[in-house]
Amino acid sequence: MIEAQGLFKRYGDKTAVNGISFTVHPGKVTGFLGPNGAGKSTTMRMIVGLDTPSAGSVSVNGRRYAEHQAPLREVGALLEAKAFHTKRSAYNHLRAMAATHGIPNSRVHEVIEMTGLGPVAKKRVGGFSMGMGQRLGIAVAMLGDPQTVILDEPVNGLDPEGVQWIRHLARGLAAEGRTVFLSSHLMSEMAMTADHLIVIGRGRIIADAPVSEIIAGRGQLRTRVRTDRPSELLAALGGDGTTSTFLEPDVLEITGPDPRRIAEAALRQQVLVYELTPLQASLEEAYMELTASEVEYSSHDLPLGAQAQDVPEGSRS
């Protein structure tokens, strides 16, 4: 369980996180969605105490992260890829991390197996591909068998197999009753993995709702129709609330009427229809709609992302 209250973070005169409050509950995967520079990473860094909030507070399992006796058992965090010394091997990095909590070496071997790092565990981390670095980061996150798992852009640099593995891992952890908090700017990935979404833009929370609700609340019913005589079918549907676009000469995307009404119209008109596919509004569209409105509210500023993008990098290091 992660609880943030009125969390603010300013770097100089730039506000990276602008007074956000949210709760991440156990037992499900919560996605943290937003464009680059929206404040996702900064928020996650504040959760594990790397950044100190300018105002507000965030607790994990009821306490500030630093106040826990065994922080690695409370939270496993993958923050940025490559938080490792490049000259040290993956195995030794894990050993050093485990040692701080007296986590036995057997667990080190377990997480190496789990993340598929076995063949490269004794190699220097400096030579790792981004995907391997990501796997090592996840291995570190899993070391303490934590109750809460925070993964910042975990699928970055992973191959398709790795992406699928992350998806299963996140879902598996949530199914075991753990709190899983996962950030991404890939909407499609979130649609597959997350149960609940917190959408952030320009340091503010835009939406905080179950994925299904966010999809349902946005976008209209669309249907893809394949027919020999599209213009006749459109005429039969009538104009009210119906819009259409031609995808191909014989393929239409119709917005408004549901598939049954389209089929009825086709039957009445004796038009042959050989495809009728309901299209779900994608999370991506819902997301674009959400963040687009956020841009409108501040049309005098720089476009979304451009301003905030450099904030965390510039003032850190």
Partner: peptide, 24 residues
């Protein structure tokens, strides 16, 4: 490659009494 953690989450109270935790 396994797709879940090898150790299931134990009930919170039981796992914090002793065992792995920070010390100097």
């Amino acid at each position: 490659m396994s797709t879940s953690t090898s150790t299931p989450a134990a009930p919170p109270g039981a796992r914090r009494s002793d065992g792995p935790r920070l010390s100097f």
